[in-house]
Design a protein around this nucleic acid. Structure first.
Length: 495
RNA sequence: GGCCCCUUCGUCUAGUCUGGCCUAGGACACCAGGUUUUCAUCCUGGCGACAGGGGUUCAAAUCCCCUAGGGGUCACCA
């Protein structure tokens, strides 16, 4: 029996978007899009203490930014609303009542103290902690009376005997002995339902056909499958994704470094690179192609092809991929993406960026192959904005320059001065300088290393004549003059 | 500890279902060359893995069993 393909992402609004959540969202979204199904966003805010509206807003914003658009959600509405779990409490109560009626659930009057004691005893005997089912055999009528009288109770699921099979799209069939499953709590004594209960209620109500989530949920699955059966609903297809791991091979967490989507956005990782990298965590296109578009991913993605083993997060590869995307961008896009960082560094405010758009585009294009993240541009081009006497000479650049000495640079400056009276034309200057070097037979390095150091303080960078054009004649001459001076002075340590 | 999952280069992975084309492929990182005015990009090459042990078979990374290791999970959190 086939039913409409419907997938969902169900984040709890208790913090920033974790990379794991982003990948889960991506995989769910991809299946929905590939199959022409629907992608649903549901906010799992049953933990009233930790859930915040800001976090919810941030999650919607983050997913939109990634381009993982949903068809139904708290902001859009839809035929299966509401899409905020806290607003579905009535339907949860109704389901709980039905289960109680049917005998699939029972009232548990055990006090927290008794449970704690029970647990302590089990711990002492090195047994697996589990509820001893004391209230399971209470007469329902009697239990109803006690409840009526105001005695507090929680609602537990009565786990049936036998075994539960989970047919997982990634892992194949996994069998659990029901005897190993605890009579878990569905509704707390304060009346609030728990995760394992509501997630199933809502997935049933929203007609979710595929549940794709992290492997940490695999052990919850038998409970949920049993609940589907008690509710008289067909369970969805499950797919448990391999965990994303930190260097320590443990579940990726804040301890492992930057794990939130926002961290990487803030560092200027291109959107496409983030999606591409996430797709590579547990999946490969053809084993050869590493860089591919979202469209290509959707076209090729199949849950059956997801690998089973955990994936250790590799920041180096992520950064490399970011560079691939950044370098492939048209300059216009590059400038647009770098703009906030350029403004943030106090180099050019938005107005100036508009006024000097052409100049900025040339500069950005000049550095494109040297940066991997948008945030790296400002540092690379800081020398263009620095006061002439505030250009910092990097150690390596100065070392190179000093090795060549300042004599050639001094001669070049004299030759150059009259030629810059009408400004800098990179193309002409480049040819003329080459001729000058050949004529004098001094070698490229003898001029270029001191020259680059004097102009930018850097050991590497874009074409020097482009740099001169960006800097302008005045600044060039001033920097060369002070460079000659500085190179003439032998430093203490070098004597 | 119980239960469950997993195990191919340091890392991400292809190959495993449907044994032979695998003297195990690609990528990141690393190393060495080349191109370049420099740095970077780019190009070429190198390093480097089937966790171990038993079977089955003419043939096993691929099938079966055992062992070891890693991870997840054991809440009136989600």
């Amino acid at each position: 029996m086939t039913r409409p393909v419907r997938l969902r992402i169900a984040p709890s609004p208790t913090g920033a978007i974790h990379l794991g959540l982003a990948r889960t969202a991506l995989f769910n979204w991809a299946v929905a899009r590939r199959c022409g199904g629907r992608f649903v966003l549901r906010i799992e805010d049953t933990d009233r203490e930790r859930s915040t509206a800001e976090s919810e807003a941030a999650i919607l914003e983050g997913l939109s930014w990634l381009g993982l658009d949903w068809d139904e959600g708290p902001d859009l509405g839809g035929p299966h609303g509401p899409y905020r779990q806290s607003e579905r409490i009535d339907s949860h109560r109704e389901a709980a009542g039905r289960l109680l009626e049917a005998g699939s659930a029972y009232r548990c009057f055990c006090t927290t103290e008794r449970l704690a004691k029970l647990r302590a005893g089990q711990d002492a005997r090195k047994q697996t902690p589990a509820y001893d089912r004391r209230c399971r055999d209470l007469d329902p009528a009697e239990a109803a009376v006690r409840a009526e009288d105001g005695e507090p109770f929680a609602l537990r699921f009565a786990v049936p005997p036998g075994e539960t099979r989970v047919d997982d799209l990634v892992r194949g069939e996994v069998v659990f002995q029901n005897a190993e499953v605890d009579d878990w709590i569905m509704v707390r004594r304060d009346g609030n339902p728990t995760y394992n209960f509501v997630v199933v209620c809502d997935d049933v109500a929203m007609e979710i056909s595929h549940v794709v989530r992290g492997e940490e949920h695999l052990v919850n699955t038998p409970k949920q499958v049993q609940l589907y059966e008690a509710l008289g609903s067909e369970p969805p297809r499950f797919a448990h994704l391999p965990l994303m791991l930190g260097r320590d091979k443990k579940k990726l967490s804040k301890r492992s470094g930057d794990v939130s989507l926002g961290d990487y956005r803030a560092k200027g990782y291109p959107r496409g690179a983030i999606l591409n990298f996430l797709a590579l965590q547990g999946w490969a296109l053809d084993g050869e192609t590493e860089v591919f578009s979202l469209e290509r991913f959707v076209e090729a993605f199949r849950l059956e092809d997801v690998s089973k083993g955990g994936a250790v997060f590799d920041p180096d590869k992520f950064r490399w991929l970011a560079g691939e995307y950044l370098r492939a961008e048209p300059v216009g896009d590059l400038v647009r993406h770098c703009a906030p960082f350029v403004a943030g560094a106090g180099q050019l405010d938005p107005t100036s960026q508009r006024e000097r758009a052409e100049w900025l585009a040339a500069v950005a294009a000049g550095e494109q192959e040297r940066i991997s993240l948008y945030s790296e541009l400002p540092e690379r081009i800081a020398y263009l904005f620095a006061a002439d006497d505030a250009v910092v000479w990097e150690p390596k650049a100065e070392k190179n320059a000093r090795k060549q000495g300042g004599a050639v640079l001094a001669e070049y400056l004299d030759w150059l001065r009259p030629r810059l009276s009408k400004g800098v034309d990179a193309a002409i200057l480049r040819d003329d300088t080459r001729a000058w070097i050949e004529e004098r037979d001094v070698g490229f390095a003898a001029l270029f290393q001191p020259l680059r150091c004097a102009l930018s303080g850097k050991a590497g960078g874009p074409d020097l004549f482009d740099v001169m054009e960006w800097l302008g004649a005045e600044a060039c001459l001033r920097r060369l003059a002070s460079g000659v001076e500085r190179l003439a002075v032998v430093r203490e340590g070098e004597r």
